[in-house]
Design a protein around this nucleic acid. Sequence first.
RNA 1: GCCGAUGUGGCGAAACUGGCAGACGCGCUCGACUCAAAAUCGAGUUCUGUAACAGGAGUGCCGGUUCAAAUCCGGCCAUCGGCACCA
Length: 805
Amino acid sequence: MKQYNHQEIEKKWQDIWEKEHRFEVKNHEDNKENAYVLIEFPYPSGKGLHVGHIRSYSALDAVARKKRMQGYNVLFPMGTDSFGLEAERTAIKEHKLPQEIVSRNIATFKEQLKMVGLSVDWSREISTSDPSYYKWTQWLFLQFVKHGLAEKQETTVNFCPNCGVLANEEVENGKCVQCGAETTQKPKAQWVLKMTKYAERLADDLKDTDYMEHIKTSQINWIGKSEGTEVKFDIEGGGSFKIFTTCIETIYGITFMVLAPENKLVDSLKNRILNWNEVEEYRKQASKKSDFERTEMAKTKTGCILSGIYAINPVNGKKVPVYISDFVLASYGTGAVMAVPTHDARDYEFAKAKNIEMIEVISGGNVAEKAYEKQEYLQKDSILINSGKFSGLKVSEAKKAITDYLINLGVAEKKINFKMRDWIFSRQRYWGEPIPMIHCDHCGWVPVNEEDLPITLPIVESYDVTKDGESPLSKIESFVNTTCPKCKGKAKRETDTMPGWAGSSWYYMRYCDPHNDKEFASLDALSAWLPVGLYNGGNEHTCRHLLYARFWNKFFYDIGISPVSEPFKNRISQGIVLGSNGVKMSKSLGNVVDPREVIKEYGADSIRVWEAFMGDYFETVNWNDDGVKSANRLINRIWNMQEFLTEGTEFSKELNFSLNFAIDKVTSDIDNVKFNTAISTIMSLVNEIYSNKKINKAEYKTLITLLSPFAPHVCEELYTICNFGTSMKDATWPVADKKALIKDTIELPVQVAGKVRGKITVSNSASQEEAVAVALENEDVKKYSNGLNPKKVIYVAGRILNLIF
RNA sequence: GCCGAUGUGGCGAAACUGGCAGACGCGCUCGACUCAAAAUCGAGUUCUGUAACAGGAGUGCCGGUUCAAAUCCGGCCAUCGGCACCA
C-alpha cells in the first residue's frame, strides 16, 4: 500500500477535472433536474483569501458535489465583485491603476481557490468591473430610468473641506478620518433608485422564501413598515405641516412639536421666527452630524425652539410650541413629529432637557419617573385619561375612534410608512460603473442609447477624490463632453459612478448566461436556474445586499426580464473565522492564515474537512492550527483502512446499522447545513471499523462516497485504487435502508423523580406497563423505590421513563 | 441607542427542539510498538468526592413554569454583526 501523499493526489485530480471540464454545466441536461448552489462572490481585496473564505466555499462545494451525485445538474459558479472603494484606495496608495490592482488580486484569488479543488464551473466566471459585465449593469440602470424608478434627487453627502466627499466609514465623530477636519453634510443632487415603491412587496414576499428566521426579521426590520396616521397641524397665523404617528391615541398628550432641522418649512417661516440666528446656528451644528449620531439614544437631546411659532392640536385646539431637533430626520416620515413626553422616551428626554410641560393621557404608568411607552400600554390595553371625549376608552378602541374622528374632520388619513429609504445610487468616485446618463441644456437628463453601451471608464492618471465634491471623471473633458442622444446638441455626461452594490445586485443572473452579448441574460437561461436553491453569504450582507438584489429582481420580474418574483429560495449565512487569538483576521494584526500554507502542509482535503468540522457553520469560530491535524488524521485513517479491505458486494451484519445510519445522517446533515456533525458521524463510523479491523469493498465504497463531498481529491484516488470506477465522475450518492435503522431493543433511561437512576433494555415497542415492570426489577431503581409501586409514571416511548414514588 | 445573534469541560463543540448534558475532535495522562523519539494503535479524561463504588454540583448571572429545562418565560451581564457612501 502506498502512503497517502496529498500533494501528488490533489494536483493529479485538479488537473483531471480541469482537462475533463468536469464541472462545466449546460443550462439544460436531459433527464436531470437543475439545482443552483450559490455562494457570494468575493471582493478581490489585496489581502487575498484567508482560511475563513475556505470555510464557506468548501461547504457549499460539498453541497454542490453531493447534489451532483444525487443526479442533479448543478450550477456552482464563481466570480469577483471587483468594483469598489478598497481597490481604488489600494490603487491610489500604490500609484497604480485600479484595473491593474484588480487583475492582480483576481489572479491571486483564483490561484488560491483552485488549490482548494472547488467544483466550480470556471467557464462561467464573471467580474463586475469587466466592461462586458458592467455594460449590462448600465443597461439595467437604464431600465430603471425608463420605468421612472431612477431620478435625480436632492440629498446630502459627507463633505470634508480638504478631502471632498467621504464615505460614512471615513467620518468619525464628525471628523474626517484622513485629515481630521470637521465634516459637514453637503447638499447634492444624486441619482436615486426608488426602492420604497417595492417596500411592501419586499416585506410580504419573504413568506415565499425559506430564509433563516433571523434573516427574514432583519429584512423586515430594515424595511420597517409601520401603520399609522398622518395628521395635519395648522400653524397659528397661517401655514400647516403634517406629521406621521403610530400612536394617535396619545394625541391629547402633545405638549410640543418637533421638526427636522433641514425641514423646508423652517425656511418658509423665517420671517415669523423671532430667534432666527439661534435657529440657523443649530441647523449648522446639526448638519455636521450623521443620522446615526443624531438618533443615538445615549446622547442628550438637543434642540432649538422656533420662537413665535405655535402649532394647533386639531383634537382640542391646544397651542403648543414648535422646536427643531436633530433626533428628527428629514428623511423619515414627514420630517416632523408630534411630541408626547409622557408616552415616548425620546420626547420625555427632550421635555426634561427643555423643561416642557407633560400631560399623562394613558393611565397605568408612572410618568413622573419615565415615559409609559406603547410596548407596555398596548400589551396591557390601558385606559385613556385627560383625552376629552375619548377618556375612558381602552387604547385599542381609542386608536380607531380618534383616527375616525380626525379623518371626519378632514385633517388626517391612515398611512403606511416605511423606515426604508430610497437607494442613493450615485458615488463621486472613479472605480465604479459610469452612470449612463447625459445632461443636455435643452433636453435635460437623457439616457445613453442602449447601443452605445458600455460607457467605459476612461483610463486616467489621477482618479483621486476631488476637493470640489465632484467625481474624478468630471475632470476628464474627453469623457464629459459629448452630444445629446436626443437633439444631437452639445451635452455633458453624468460623471458619478454607481455604488459597489450595483454589480452584486444581479451577478447571480449573469452566471446563468455569462457570455450573452445580446441580453443581460436570456429568459430561457434564467428560467433554467432560478430561483437559486441555496444562497450563502456573510452575515453582514443579509440585510442590505440581499434586499437590493431582491429589489432588482422584483423590478426585472415586473418588466418581464426575470422569470421569478423571488430570486433566492433559501438564504443562509456562515459565521466568521477569527484568528486563533479570537480577533478578526487582519494584516496589521498579523493573524491572517493563508490557506495556501495550510494546504501545502496538510492538503486541501484536510483543510476542507477541518473547516467543515470546526463548529456550527453559522457560528463565529476561532482558527486553530491543531485542528487541521485532526482532519488529516481522519483522512489517513480512512486511507490506511485499505489494509482491512476484504471482498464483498453487500454490507456485512456488523456494519449494516452503522453504515445506514451514517448515510442517513450525513445526507440530512448536508441538507440541513450541519457539516460538523456530518464529519463526526463519519469519524464514529471509522472508529467502529477500526475496532472491527474489517471492511469490505461495498462498505468502503460507501464510506468514501460519504466523505467525498468534503475531501474530493483523496476520495477520487481511493475510488480508483480500489477499482470502484475510473473516477468518481459517475459515482452516485448512497441511499439509506430505513429498515436497517430500526433496532429491536433499545436502552431506556429511567428517572426517579426527575433524576436518571438507571437504564433498562426493552423492546422498541414496549408499552408503559412493560417498561415499568422491567424498571421495578432494575437494581439501580430498586435503591430508590423501596419496593413501592410508583405514584406517578411519565413514559415517553423510546425516550424516557420517569417514576415518582 | 435601535435591530439581530451568541454564551455548555483545559479547548473546538454535540444534544433528534422540553426527555441520559458533554457525542465527535483537540489537548493531556497511561499503555502497546520502538534502542529512543515521532508517527501509529489502544485505554482514560466535566468538577467535586471515593482505594473503588456510591453520593453531590454543574450549560453566563438571578428568579419562575414543569414529573423533567442548555432548551420555555421574566429580569440582568458579557461578546459579536448591522444601522443606509466599505461591500
